[in-house]
Amino acid sequence: MSRRPDLLRPTVSEPAQVARAPYSLQTGFLSAFFGGPFAAALMLGLNAWRLKRLPRDAAWALLIAAAFTAWLAFTQQTEPGLALQARLVELGGRNAMSIAARLFALLACVGTALLHRREQRSADLFGLQRPNGWGVGIALIVIGWGASHLLASALA
């Protein structure tokens, strides 16, 4: 008899319960780079869903989206935020805010890579078939970029 009978409970009894290979780090990087923080959040959510860990990771995806929304609201609608924006533009040029958004998205991408580090390594080790990232990547870039611009316009 096992010391740990809990280990002998089935956990992948239905094919729908089995984790699937996540999108590659390259897809995540390029989506975040061109699509911004909302794209990075969606990528995290999508990979979490494929890996059957959405309940665990949904909070992180929402945090990324909420943090970026809060940043936009702060820099567009508050006095200190507007002053900060002016200072960033002074230091970094007129694209400073866009660069800051991209920086935020890439840091979110790094966070995602760390969160799913084991799964990404396993997928490489076992040679799991990765999903094609082109369609999803382009969709996330369009959605992410569009959402960022719409929100920034709405808050301006």
Binding site: L7, T11, V12, V18, A19, L51, R118, E119, S122, F126
Partner: peptide, 10 residues
């Protein structure tokens, strides 16, 4: 099997 299913703690 669990490793292949990406269930590492188990």
């Amino acid at each position: 099997v669990m490793l292949r299913a990406l269930q590492f703690p188990k």
